[in-house]
């Protein structure tokens, strides 16, 4: 039936049942929306396991103390550490220790964010910049930021600026690299789709590249925070001075100087808890939200 003349005016299609057929197909093929897990189940699956693990560690610790595997000045008992904690709480100094470090850490992290984000965007999008500093940036990630403490002390002195410098040197490469790998992992199809829709230049960066890179960027932020916190603690332990105020790092160093192992343990525990808490309260919810919105979170 190969006609020789073209039909320029197509006759009107009338397929009455099409809408119904389509609605049926849609209904059959749509993923049912996931239900919210009830609180009891969340407690049983998410809270119980870590709580049991902590309890187990405490039990083992106490047993080791009872068995006297090490003298008291090397291995304090859980109750000694608890006493140390409640004394600091009653004296009102506990929150000061924590806040001194956390405020430094978060402020430093925000600075790192402000610097690392445009830097990552530049490295990912400008070929010359990538060739020039890309390898250095990823190399810096594997340099322990403790290494920066001595030069930072010499250049900037024993003050908060030196702390921030160390945090930045630790966190900026992570954040920038996270953004770079997030951008590199954007499926090229999205970029082509964006371009056919008319997204070029800055509009492409804003509407396509940044949102597309968000999962990788968030992973970079998370790692950036971990690096910020680690480098800050290193700086606080190495560089203590009366005008710096007592953060968790100094608390640890003071404990060592006073031969108070209970205080050292308390400081280590607090450092660990703050690190976990920030991740649990800020980064994990953010990451889950983003991944869930994109259907990338597989509930297990």
């Amino acid at each position: 039936m190969a006609g020789t003349e073209s039909t320029t005016t197509p006759p009107k299609a009338d397929v009455p049942d099409l809408a119904g057929l389509e609605a049926g197909l849609d209904a059959l093929d749509t993923v049912p929306a996931g239900r919210r897990t009830p609180l009891r189940e969340t407690l049983a699956r998410k809270v119980l396991p870590p709580v049991s693990a902590v309890a187990l560690v405490l039990v083992v610790w106490q047993v080791l103390v009872w068995a006297r595997v090490a003298p008291e000045y090397k291995l304090p008992s859980p109750s000694a550490v608890w006493d140390e904690l409640s004394t600091a709480w009653l004296e009102g100094t506990l929150l000061d220790y924590v806040w001194t470090s956390v405020s430094r850490g978060l402020l430093g992290f925000l600075l790192a964010l402000v610097i690392g984000t445009p830097l990552g965007l530049l490295v990912a999008r400008v070929r010359f910049v990538r060739a020039a500093i890309g390898p250095i940036l990823s190399g810096l990630q594997s340099l322990p930021s403790v290494a920066w403490v001595p030069p930072a002390v010499i250049w900037l002195g024993l003050n908060d600026r030196m702390m921030y410098a160390v945090i930045l040197l630790g966190a900026v490469p992570s954040i920038a690299n996270g953004l770079v790998s997030g951008i590199d992992q954007i499926p090229p199809l999205f970029l082509r789709a964006g371009r056919t829709l008319g997204a070029t230049g800055l509009r492409e960066s804003w509407h396509i590249v940044l949102p597309g890179a968000l999962p990788g960027y968030l992973a970079g932020l998370k790692q950036g925070w971990a690096f910020s916190w680690r480098s800050l603690m290193a700086a606080e332990i190495i560089a203590s001075s009366p005008d710096l105020g007592v953060g968790l790092g100094q608390l640890l160093e003071n404990g060592r100087n006073n031969s108070s192992m209970a205080q050292v343990f308390l400081a280590i525990l607090l450092i660990l808890i703050v690190g976990i808490a920030i991740d649990l309260l800020i980064f994990s919810p953010l990451e889950r939200r983003v991944l869930r919105g994109r259907g990338l979170l597989v509930s297990r």
């Binding site: 006609g3 039909t7 197509p10 006759p11």
Partner: peptide, 9 residues
């Protein structure tokens, strides 16, 4: 090239 004269639908 073929021109298709079959009416829609």
């Amino acid at each position: 090239t073929w021109t298709v004269g079959i009416p829609q639908p």
